[in-house]
Simulated assay, not measured.
Amino acid sequence: MTIIILDRHPGGPPPYADWLADAGEDLVLITNHPATDVDGYAEVRYIPDHGSSAELAVLELAATTTVSALVATATPDLVRAGALRDHLGIEGQGRAAATVLADPVAMRQRLRAAGVPTIPAGAVQRVSDLYWYRHRWGGGPVRVRRRKDPGWPTAAILRDERDLRAFTANGLTPNLITVPSLLVEPDLAGSRHVVHGSTQDGRKLVRDALSALPCGPELPYRVEILRAETGAWLVDTVDSAVATDHRAVVREQAGLPSREVTRWAS
């Protein structure tokens, strides 16, 4: 039995072998860091691009050993790992659930369908989408974010027609065959708050948001919330609180839930 770990942690791999020492299974590390301590691992594979080559490495290993778990905590790997679990019949988060947590547009659609108040958002695939959404939301400022980048960073804030024309002057992508990975949302004024909570949290908005998403019942999640000028509380984004308790996330994905999960205060 083998646990495969997909690693692209900045600065080098965390001590996965120590965290999973009680698993009683072989550990195989697939990493994009060339200088890696191999102690505790049955095998370490260095794959610099960590794209399709990492997927092929997982499939190659699965052909020669029984894979009991696949660990992947970096945002770019979540959907890839989910698809591999589906294909190989491995327990854990599948592609559909991973897509909801990795894509803020899908995430907010799921939250709204469950009655959880959230900031509106729309996918941007063409220039006309920006004009359409801005008109739909009353013609005020809009924020454009990079939909597939870790943390979904802001690409631009378009406050008026001049900003919109300048942002779209050269198109949304380097060439016509590339699909933009952008989202747009109204640039709402207010104060932003970050909460680390769980589906068992006592705060209703946090609990409702996490319960509406495919979130594990024990792990802490990072929930960003906007307190709008109207007084309304709106969910912005939700992601796994890897930076807060990376060990717990790794152990949960390996089928070894931590007994030391911290209950977070706001």
Rank of each mutant, 00 (worst) to 15 (best):
L219W: 07
W137F: 08
G94D: 15
A113W: 08
T230W: 15
L70H: 01
G82I: 02
R165A: 11
A69L: 03
L226D: 14
A106S: 12
R247I: 01
V116D: 10
G11I: 07
V116T: 15
G138Q: 07
D37T: 09
L183Y: 08
E218L: 09
V261K: 00
H33A: 05
L183E: 15
D149L: 06
H196L: 11
A97S: 13
R112T: 15
A83P: 02
H9A: 05
G190T: 10
L256M: 13
V79E: 11
A17M: 08
A42F: 00
R145V: 06
I119V: 15
G171A: 12
V194W: 02
R165G: 09
G51H: 03
D245Q: 13
G202P: 08
Q125L: 08
L176D: 09
A35F: 04
V28H: 03
R8D: 14
P34T: 08
S240Q: 07
Q93M: 13
A113S: 12
L70R: 00
P153W: 10
T31H: 04
A21I: 13
R134S: 06
A123K: 11
A189Q: 14
D201R: 05
I119C: 08
S266V: 12
R45Q: 11
L188K: 10
R143G: 03
V179A: 14
Q109F: 08
Y221A: 00
G190F: 11
V79R: 08
M107W: 00
A83C: 06
L84M: 05
E43G: 01
V250P: 00
V249M: 03
A54M: 07
G82K: 01
E260L: 07
L130Y: 04
T178C: 05
I225F: 06
L61M: 07
D187E: 12
P104W: 12
Q200R: 15
A17T: 02
V67N: 03
V28Q: 02
I4A: 06
